[in-house]
Amino acid sequence: MSASPRPAATTDAVSDARLSGNRTAFVTIVRKEIRRFMRIWVQTIVPPAVNAILYMLIFGGLIGSRISDMDGFRYLDYIVPGLIMMSVIINSYSNVSSSFFSAKMQNYVEEMLVAPISNVTILAGFVIGGVVRGLTVGLLVSFVALFFSDVVPVHPLITISVALLTSVMFALGGLINAVFAKTFDDISIVPNFVLTPLTYLGGVFYSITLLPEPWGTVSLFNPVLYMVNGFRYGILGASDIPILHSFIVILIFIAVLGSIAMTLLHRGIGIKS
């Protein structure tokens, strides 16, 4: 190929075309991802809402009425932010892990790999698909909570930001899981044996100030604690963790997981030979 430089106008036109093409590809991936989880809404949207109703009935109506206030809030009101965040985390993660893994196993990920799409577009498309499902389920659980609790967000912007960033973080985690997974068991291990315990132990149902040492300190190493408490701060205005710390931890995780995901896609690990 000739090394002579192209005229600037041509280079700009090529860049514009590439940008426009990637934008269309991004929209296509997001649309496909949303259509996928909406097509199977009975499996993807309904169960978290049913779970939320059960939690609120049991912990709010039955057991919660016998539990004293937590950090000055009625117990049911205290756990509502954690329940919403739990559904956001699990659903953002599961959407990307199962969708990307299916694409990999049935080889239709190749449709994207042979197309002129940048890796960042593929990553962004899947992540936004996961975010949309996570936030959709989060909204549904919030709607269910309205029947049991009358809390309204004290800091709406912080509430939305924490939910959004947390879902981005777990969607990235879901993609990394799918890249390494070889069987469907591999994509259920992390949600069942890592995410659920971390979420339950991440202050959804209690304040870590109630824990004896060293468990209070140990809990600080649980990243989910920062998300649940950041979200609780947005809704109730109360948190075990300074809100700035929550944002810092979430952003660090997004940067690290995003870099890992990009490296995996760039090297084609698990998807190219």
């Binding site: 090529v14 590439r18 093409g21 049935q106 080889n107 239709y108 190749e110 002129p116």
Partner: peptide
């Protein structure tokens, strides 16, 4: 990306959803 845009591939194995 330029090169990929010019290629259409019909693979040996079925690879669609």
């Amino acid at each position: 990306e330029h090169a990929k845009a010019l290629i259409g591939l019909v693979p040996q194995e079925f690879n669609f959803n």
